[in-house]
Amino acid sequence: MAKFKGAIVVETEKCKGCSLCVVACPTGVIELARDVNAKGYHYAYMANPDACIGCSSCGLVCPDTVITVYRTKAS
Protein backbone atom coordinates (compact mmCIF):
# COMPACT_ATOMS: atom_id res chain seq x y z
CA MET A 1 0.00 0.00 0.00
CA ALA A 2 1.12 3.48 -0.74
CA LYS A 3 2.85 5.35 2.06
CA PHE A 4 1.05 8.56 1.31
CA LYS A 5 -2.54 9.47 0.70
CA GLY A 6 -3.30 12.47 -1.38
CA ALA A 7 -6.17 14.50 -2.70
CA ILE A 8 -6.55 17.23 -5.28
CA VAL A 9 -8.95 20.11 -5.61
CA VAL A 10 -9.65 21.30 -9.13
CA GLU A 11 -11.00 24.78 -9.77
CA THR A 12 -13.54 23.38 -12.19
CA GLU A 13 -14.70 26.69 -13.63
CA LYS A 14 -11.15 27.56 -14.72
CA CYS A 15 -10.22 24.09 -15.99
CA LYS A 16 -9.99 23.87 -19.78
CA GLY A 17 -10.04 20.09 -19.97
CA CYS A 18 -6.69 19.81 -21.76
CA SER A 19 -6.14 16.43 -20.03
CA LEU A 20 -2.41 16.99 -19.52
CA CYS A 21 -2.95 16.13 -15.83
CA VAL A 22 -4.69 12.90 -16.82
CA VAL A 23 -1.56 11.82 -18.69
CA ALA A 24 0.85 13.11 -16.04
CA CYS A 25 -0.80 11.28 -13.14
CA PRO A 26 1.29 8.18 -12.35
CA THR A 27 -1.56 6.37 -10.58
CA GLY A 28 -4.45 7.07 -12.94
CA VAL A 29 -6.46 9.16 -10.49
CA ILE A 30 -7.70 11.89 -12.79
CA GLU A 31 -10.25 11.73 -15.60
CA LEU A 32 -12.26 14.31 -17.46
CA ALA A 33 -15.83 14.65 -16.21
CA ARG A 34 -18.85 13.92 -18.37
CA ASP A 35 -20.28 17.23 -17.20
CA VAL A 36 -19.01 20.51 -18.52
CA ASN A 37 -18.26 23.81 -16.81
CA ALA A 38 -19.77 27.16 -17.81
CA LYS A 39 -17.32 27.45 -20.68
CA GLY A 40 -18.22 24.03 -22.03
CA TYR A 41 -15.03 22.23 -21.08
CA HIS A 42 -15.01 18.74 -19.59
CA TYR A 43 -13.14 19.53 -16.39
CA ALA A 44 -10.69 17.22 -14.62
CA TYR A 45 -11.80 15.44 -11.44
CA MET A 46 -10.64 12.68 -9.13
CA ALA A 47 -12.23 9.61 -10.69
CA ASN A 48 -10.19 7.21 -8.60
CA PRO A 49 -9.43 9.09 -5.36
CA ASP A 50 -8.11 6.08 -3.45
CA ALA A 51 -5.09 5.84 -5.73
CA CYS A 52 -3.92 9.43 -5.18
CA ILE A 53 -0.50 9.70 -3.51
CA GLY A 54 -0.32 13.51 -3.55
CA CYS A 55 2.75 13.63 -5.81
CA SER A 56 1.80 17.03 -7.37
CA SER A 57 2.57 15.86 -10.91
CA CYS A 58 -0.83 17.10 -12.07
CA GLY A 59 -0.31 20.47 -10.44
CA LEU A 60 3.11 20.91 -12.04
CA VAL A 61 1.95 20.28 -15.60
CA CYS A 62 -1.38 22.11 -15.38
CA PRO A 63 -1.08 25.12 -17.71
CA ASP A 64 -3.87 26.99 -15.96
CA THR A 65 -2.70 26.15 -12.43
CA VAL A 66 -6.18 25.11 -11.32
CA ILE A 67 -5.04 22.12 -9.24
CA THR A 68 -4.23 22.28 -5.52
CA VAL A 69 -2.63 19.17 -4.04
CA TYR A 70 -2.83 17.85 -0.48
CA ARG A 71 -0.86 14.98 0.97
CA THR A 72 -0.75 13.11 4.25
CA LYS A 73 0.86 9.95 5.59
CA ALA A 74 -1.28 6.87 5.11
CA SER A 75 -2.73 5.64 8.37
Partner: peptide, 11 residues
Protein backbone atom coordinates in the same frame (compact mmCIF):
# COMPACT_ATOMS: atom_id res chain seq x y z
CA UNK B 1 -6.90 15.06 3.69
CA UNK B 2 -7.93 18.42 2.26
CA UNK B 3 -6.80 20.88 4.91
CA UNK B 4 -4.07 23.50 5.16
CA UNK B 5 -1.68 21.27 7.11
CA UNK B 6 -1.46 18.79 4.26
CA UNK B 7 -1.05 21.32 1.47
CA UNK B 8 1.82 20.42 -0.84
CA UNK B 9 1.10 22.30 -4.04
CA UNK B 10 -0.94 25.38 -4.76
CA UNK B 11 -0.96 28.26 -7.15
Amino acid sequence: IINEDNLVYKK
